[in-house]
Design a protein around this nucleic acid. Structure first.
Lengths: 226, 226
DNA sequence: ACCTGAACACCGTTCAAGT
DNA sequence: ACCTGAACACCGTTCAAGT
């Protein structure tokens, strides 16, 4: 928030992806190693499990050594998140012109990538958009314009898909309750006054993937209509 | 996560809303006062600003006194979030049968309520759904079924709207950058290979409210189609 | 039934220093 | 250029005790 005095040492700027020539020497600590280890730690211990001390331990260094390569713990979060979101594109498409299949593929992959690292969902969205996230937005934009979305609607269309994916993913990651938890929640509905959603078993419905796809279809129908 | 030994003192269970008879005595500490003060503190200092010590200070009590009324800091977050989301319904409607206006009103109010307390967006979604959130879901469900959404589509329809609102709100709350930040981000697009979204000025578009409404219309079109 | 202080086992980051 | 330990100013929560 408030600008932090300086930090203007020789670090590379955050979240850029220019090619880095691997030096032949074996620097024991590097941005790349720190980020990769942070992801491992987050996968193993969750969001609260990542502390600078534990991260340094895993890397075999002192805590403060990390701060040469990285600005702050927030910086580590930004980098770890983006590192989990790279996208290599759809498999060879039967019909390369099928924009709808292409966008569904990317968005399902996006969601799946985040759900493989559930901490990433609670981290989103961050102030800083990394190169992988921007790359996905760029790709979406191209597909949508091939699909005939008008320029005037383009930004709203992109953000509506973004919103949908983010909401779905964040929700799915945090509602991963045990069956008992879900049953208890549903139970509560009966005893109080939520009869309609009790009857439709809103909190018991387990088909997250199907619901994601169905809602996405609603939205794409709306986008391509007219 | 792991069940915490007992805590089975005389506390009321979390997040229920049964009527509470106000006793004539003036207990200096109460669940209600704690939650209200937590909201004030969050509004003033943000998510990281809420600590149990600071909360106790504001209430003029010892830290540990809070734990009589509340299970943990997580519990305080659950309660503070739900307390910010109560809904009194739309103003008297010109056409009471206009389901679309009614749902737009509730969802815009939902988003607005959370944006008034920006910390609430980063808190969502939580594992526990409080009574105000459940009440909104119940209301949505009734409106949608009046709108003719089939029972088989109901849960997917509800979650798709939920996803959209959550994604939009969380994003809007965290992207509240200064104009300088946004300009810098947009600048980065030019220098790298994100030409399409650069050209549409995706990161500069300032009309969040308009984009929210537009995307919501896309989704509602899809939901009510056919 | 409700409140308390002391203590425990941690945090992120600053700083001055080492090589 | 890169790494370090000590120190600072905090955390949430357990526990045993008070009234």
């Amino acid at each position: 928030m408030a600008a932090k005095r300086s930090g203007a040492r020789g670090k590379r700027s955050r979240l850029t992806s220019e090619p880095v020539q691997e030096p032949s020497g074996e620097s024991p600590l590097s941005r790349e190693r720190i980020v990769a280890t942070a992801v491992d730690l987050l996968d193993a211990q969750g969001l609260d499990g990542l502390t600078m001390r534990r991260l340094a331990d895993r890397l075999g260094s002192g805590v403060m050594s990390l701060y040469w390569h990285v600005d702050s713990k927030e910086d580590v979060f930004d980098l770890a998140l983006d590192s989990v979101l790279d996208y290599r594109g759809p498999p060879e498409m039967a019909e390369p012109q099928n924009w709808r299949a292409e966008i569904v593929h990317m968005l399902e992959d996006w969601r799946a990538g985040m759900l493989r690292h559930p901490w990433s969902a609670s981290l989103l969205p961050r102030r800083a958009l990394g190169p992988n996230i921007l790359g996905r937005l760029e790709r979406m934009s191209k597909i949508l314009s091939r699909a005939g979305v008008a320029d005037a609607d383009m930004n709203a269309a992109i953000w509506s898909l973004w919103n949908y994916v983010m909401g779905a993913t964040v929700t799915r990651a945090s509602f991963d309750l045990s069956d008992d938890d879900r049953a208890a929640a549903q139970q509560r509905l009966t005893s109080e006054r939520y009869l309609t959603i009790e009857r439709s078993r809103l909190l018991l419905d387990n088909d997250w993937d199907g619901a994601f796809r169905k809602g996405l279809d609603f939205l794409l129908d709306g986008l391509s209509r007219g």
